[in-house]
Amino acid sequence: MMTKQAEIKLIDTLWIVLICLTLFSAWMAERAEPGFISIVIMAAVLAIKGRIIVDHFMELKHANKFIRTLMRAYFYVIPALIIIVYLYPDQIARWTSLS
């Protein structure tokens, strides 16, 4: 069981973590060379940010399993799609063509 102070401290810390991750993304947008490594890092940053909000801001970490699983899955699937779309653009373009 967390004390009230510990809860506040955790939330405050997570907010700072989210801010730092965002500034890091902005730096990547401006400076980093586009490539596989930066795509993986961006996908990981999104996964971490999403998980923090789902688990701690929405307080799903210890809540209803069905809702928690759906919400957490979102932040596995979208980051995974970012990487897959980067790796296999031509194949996906073929699968999504009408002709």
Partner: peptide, 10 residues
């Protein structure tokens, strides 16, 4: 937070 990397960063 999903839109931001997709449109501005990646």
């Amino acid at each position: 937070i999903t839109i931001f990397p997709l449109l501005y960063v990646i």
